[in-house]
């Protein structure tokens, strides 16, 4: 299509689209209220999380217990996406792998400035600690496996920023990261299957529930937090490794 025709068609269609979307939005109730005729899901969940599951963070309860099966699907979306990225960026038959080059050709290798190196190294430990905190306290405070996993994944990134590619490779070798990611992903399914064996429903919460407010409350939710954290951290680090290898290591045929 000629660009002007396309632009015209697009603008007209978008105007109609926006119009009908706004018309629909006007029929919604204000934020925080729901249609009084139907029982609100939020109220129902809030009344059940502490008495029945001893979890004080309702969002984590919905994510990993009430609707835990959705989260399993989401986790595997991430797994499949990282797998796909690794697949598409793989070393092809006509490419070769050489030592990592950090700069353009013909320039001297320079390290990052002292300030950057100092700051990144200093931030690595707090990042790891904070990440572990968010992962393990998912059922008590806002956070959980996903959030903590991504924070954990930022630690190797800081290591790369502060040093060279080979320091990143030493801290997070590819086989270890792949194994961690797969164990995290498979672990979630195994926990679900264990629920199956104990009480005849997949993803049933079968571990002892503990006291509300404790770190180890919520039964299998605590365990799922750990596996999801492992999977997400592994996934993001793998993505970083794959991209960096594509840029620094793989050479096109000349």
């Amino acid at each position: 299509m000629r660009p002007l025709v396309r632009l015209g068609l697009f603008l007209v269609s978008t105007a109609v689209f926006a119009g009908i979307f706004v018309a629909a939005l006007f029929d919604l109730h204000p934020l925080g209220h729901a249609d009084p005729l139907s029982a609100t899901y939020g109220d129902l969940v809030n009344s059940l999380t502490v008495p029945e599951r001893h979890i004080t963070d309702a969002v984590t309860a919905v994510n990993f217990d009430f609707r835990g099966f959705d989260t399993l699907g989401e986790e595997f979306i991430m797994f499949a996406s990282v797998l796909g990225a690794a697949l598409l960026l793989r070393k092809h038959a006509d490419e070769s792998a050489g030592p990592p080059i950090d700069k353009q050709q013909g320039r001297q290798i320079t390290l990052a400035s002292d300030a950057v190196r100092l700051l990144s190294v200093a931030l690595v430990s707090p990042a790891v600690l904070f990440g572990i905190y968010v992962v393990t306290h998912g059922q008590v405070t806002p956070g959980g496996g996903f959030q903590g996993g991504v924070i954990l994944a930022s630690a190797p990134l800081l290591i790369y920023v502060s040093g060279e590619f080979h320091s990143l490779r030493r801290v997070a070798p590819r086989w270890l990261v792949e194994a961690a990611e797969s164990i995290g992903a498979g672990g979630y399914v195994v926990i679900g299957a264990a629920g199956l064996l104990s009480a005849n429903a997949f993803l049933h919460n079968f571990l002892p529930l503990g006291r509300p407010g404790d770190v180890f409350s919520g039964g299998s939710v605590a365990l799922i937090d750990l596996t999801v954290g492992l999977e997400v951290a592994g996934g993001f680090i793998l993505l970083l490794l794959v991209f960096l290898e594509e840029v620094l290591v793989l050479r096109d045929p000349i």
Binding site: G73, I77, L83, G84
Partner: peptide
């Protein structure tokens, strides 16, 4: 919503499988 989640999972796997011959 579960339908949507599996829709996305199907799509993610399909994108990668479609671009498989990435040479």
């Amino acid at each position: 919503f579960n339908l949507f989640v599996f829709f996305e999972l199907m799509s993610a796997a399909a994108f990668a499988l479609c671009g498989y011959k990435s040479e």
